[in-house]
Design a protein around this nucleic acid. Structure first.
Lengths: 136, 136
DNA sequence: TATAATATAATTATATTTTAATATCAATAG
DNA sequence: CTATTGATATTAAAATATAATTATATTATA
């Protein structure tokens, strides 16, 4: 697992959006400026979020991004996966890679257990939780 | 946080050592061969472990590496930190870096909480737990 | 037709993994 | 006692992989 900077940027952007009333549309460039995130990089991030239905996008004039769900229904696990891809604390757990070295599989059960707890925890945190703990 | 391949190698090596009776000395090259780990890279890893008192090293003829503690007293958290350095699921938690972006600090509390759980979990797993779950 | 998202490619930066060379140390053969 | 041998210790640096950023062209819509 690696929680990347993209993920930090994402949380900034989502918290920013969550501060306005549901349905408000934001332009990428506005979010980028407000959150101090590289504009073009933010583009990628917002697209990932749109593909995961965390955001809804509209093109053209008066287009932009809106939250796709209420902040309380957007969990951190979904956000992380949308941006950073499948969460695996160890390659061993990556189904596409597989645990190719027999002996190391001793640890497989541990990684699986540890990761399950982690995911459960991340599912409990919503965007609303984070946005509310933020006074601006 | 990133759990690297070095960490996988480490677990292989430690499980291998834990299969023999306490006090047995192993040469780096033997471990490398038995565990299929690049010899020189393993050198680095074993040194990190020795610095953290997980292993004891002796130079010269008849030298080698021995476990520094009973497998049941070696926890996975200590192993990971010894090899991969301080565990931080997010830079935000790295005390040396600090949480420089105010707005993103909204998430700080969450990361801290999630990480605390993770560490607690990793402290509960011992080398003995892993080695025993391994039939060879 | 201007505007804003979408897609993709290219580039730069950083971190991980591996290899290699050299230094240090301890046992022991002579 | 000292030279040799077999082991770890230390350091540098090359190779590879991944993350972060930038740039450009495409598509949709008011």
């Amino acid at each position: 697992m690696k929680i990347t900077r993209a993920c930090d940027y994402t949380i900034r952007a989502l918290v920013y959006m969550a501060q306005s009333s549901m349905g408000t549309a934001f332009m990428r460039s506005d979010i980028a400026k407000a959150c101090n995130v590289p504009d073009s990089f933010l583009g990628k991030i917002l697209q990932s979020l749109a593909k995961s239905d965390i955001l809804v996008s509209e093109r053209g004039k008066k287009g932009g991004f809106r939250l796709g769900k209420e902040p309380k229904n957007i969990c951190m696990y979904d956000v992380i996966v949308a941006v950073d891809g499948p969460l695996n604390i160890n390659n061993c757990l990556d189904e596409q890679v597989g645990c190719c070295y027999d002996q190391s599989c001793c640890a497989h059960k541990m990684w699986k257990d540890v990761q399950a707890d982690l995911i459960e925890k991340l599912k409990k945190y919503s965007l609303a939780d984070i946005s509310e703990g933020c006074q601006q």
